[in-house]
């Protein structure tokens, strides 16, 4: 496999995958999900990972985000060789470098918007005042300052996802990973969320890796990477 096929623009790579493989074991049977993935993603990239279901796109996202481990090859993300980190170090690494955006938002129902956004900051040792400033800043960015005290059930789907995005960026991570971020949203809200992500990429230089099967969503990314049966198929630069 040749990395030249995937020219994702210049710049320092933030994600480097070398011959990454992942397989699951079902009883004695090995089921390969990803094979021989070689990929470099530069800082500031906005990638849409696409492919039919079962192609391994979510698995690849999980590996890059450090919530799953490869069965072969090596990953260097945000300056760390992920294989060399133990589980606790990996957790700390995620807290510092990765923000997550999920399809179902996954807000904690018993916490209000402010408290949900504050959650990852609890791990950073930031004091109360600093936490407040950063949460307010993040919520202002997603334009939900007035909804700070609302609980998830009092928010619309689009608002919930925006709170989730605020939670993802509050620690100021280098990398945002999103798994079908618009999958549960109607067209209007989806558009809003995608616009927000685009802004995070262009204005705040966040590197974004997004899994989606929605061509409209993928159109917002700078590049689309297609997977097919566990191997990289092609990369397309999006003309916006």
């Amino acid at each position: 496999m040749n990395t030249d096929r995937f020219d994702l623009g210049g710049g320092e790579p933030i994600i480097t995958l070398r011959d990454v493989a992942k397989s699951y074991w079902r009883e004695a049977l090995e089921i390969p999900v990803l094979q021989g993935i070689d990929l470099e993603i530069p800082v500031g990239a906005y990638i849409a990972l696409m492919g039919p279901s079962g192609s391994g796109k979510t698995t690849l996202l999980n590996l890059v985000a450090g919530i799953d481990r490869p069965t072969g090859g090596s990953l260097e993300v945000c300056g760390h060789e992920l294989n060399s980190l133990d589980d606790d170090q990996l957790a700390a690494w995620r807290n510092a470098h990765v923000g997550f955006i999920f399809q179902n938002y996954n807000l904690v129902p018993v916490l209000n918007a402010f408290e949900n956004v504050e959650l990852p900051l609890l791990l950073t040792g930031a004091g109360r005042g600093e936490r407040r400033d950063r949460v307010e800043e993040a919520l202002a960015l997603v334009n939900l300052t007035d909804r700070m005290g609302n609980y998830p059930r009092q928010l619309s789907g689009g608002q919930e996802q925006r709170v989730a995005i605020a939670r993802a960026i509050v620690t100021d991570p280098d990398l945002l990973v999103a798994d079908e971020p618009t999958g549960a949203l109607d067209a209007k809200n989806a558009e809003e969320v995608l616009a927000l992500m685009e802004r995070l990429n262009s204005e705040f230089q966040k590197t974004i890796v997004m899994v989606t099967h929605d061509p409209k969503a993928a159109h917002h990314a700078k590049h689309q990477i297609h997977l097919e049966k566990g191997v990289l198929d092609k990369a397309v630069e999006v003309n916006r």
Binding site: A65, I67, D87, D88, A91, A92, W93, R94, N95, A96, V98, F100, F102, N104, N106, V108, L119, P120, L123, R167, T171
Partner: peptide
């Protein structure tokens, strides 16, 4: 179950 996974994804260690 999901919430715990989310916490851990955000960087909460298993022991925490």
């Amino acid at each position: 179950t999901t919430e715990i996974a989310v916490f851990r994804a955000m960087g909460f260690s298993a022991s925490r």
